[in-house]
C-alpha cells in the first residue's frame, strides 16, 4: 500500500493549524480530538479524517500523484503525534497545563516541520531511539 505524499503534507498543515488552535485556546478537548484523528490515521492512513478532506477538496484540483510513498513511515509519524497530543490532552484536562502546553508544542514542531519542509522528525529520531534503547 502506498500513499500520495501531497496528502500527507496537506494533513500535516491541517494538523499544525489545529495544534496552533489548541495552544491559542488551551482547549484540552480539541487536543483530544486531534489525538483521535492521529489514532485513526495511524491505524489506516487512507481512512484518516484529513485524508478524506484531501481527497474531496484538494486532489481533484491537483490531478493524480506522480510519485507515491510507503505507508510505514506515515503510520509511525502518526503514532508519535498521537503520543504527544494524547499527553497534551491529559495535561490540559487534568489541570496540568504546563504538560499540555509542552506536549502540544512538540506536536506542533513535528507537524510544522513536516508541512513546511517535508521533514519527518519521528522518523529521524527512530534510529536514535533504537541506538539508545537496544543493547547489541
Amino acid at each position: 500500500m502506498e500513499l500520495d505524499p501531497r496528502g500527507q503534507r496537506f494533513a500535516a498543515a491541517l494538523t499544525s493549524a489545529v495544534i496552533i488552535l489548541v495552544l491559542a485556546t488551551g482547549s484540552g478537548w480539541l487536543a483530544l480530538a486531534q489525538a483521535v484523528v492521529f489514532a485513526i490515521t495511524a491505524l489506516d492512513p487512507r481512512k484518516g479524517p484529513y485524508s478524506y478532506v484531501y481527497r474531496a477538496l484538494i486532489l481533484p484540483r491537483l490531478g493524480p500523484p506522480t510519485e507515491r510513498e510507503p505507508v510505514a513511515p506515515v503510520r509511525f509519524a502518526q503514532t508519535v503525534g498521537l503520543a504527544f497530543l494524547g499527553l497534551s490532552a491529559v495535561g490540559y484536562l487534568t489541570g496540568l497545563t504546563t504538560l499540555g502546553v509542552v506536549a502540544a508544542a512538540f506536536g506542533l514542531l513535528a507537524a510544522f516541520l513536516n508541512a513546511a519542509f517535508g521533514l519527518c522528525l519521528g522518523c529521524e529520531a527512530y534510529l536514535l531511539i533504537k541506538r539508545a534503547s537496544v543493547r547489541a
Binding site: L23, T25, V101, L119
Partner: peptide, 24 residues
C-alpha cells in the same frame, strides 16, 4: 486567548523554521 500559548506558538514556529532551513 491564552498569552502563554501564543508565545509558545511563535517560539515553536521560529525554532521549526530554523531547523528546517538548516536541514535543507
Amino acid at each position: 486567548m491564552d498569552v502563554l500559548g501564543i508565545g509558545v506558538i511563535v517560539a515553536v514556529l521560529v525554532v521549526a523554521t530554523t531547523i528546517g532551513l538548516w536541514r535543507r
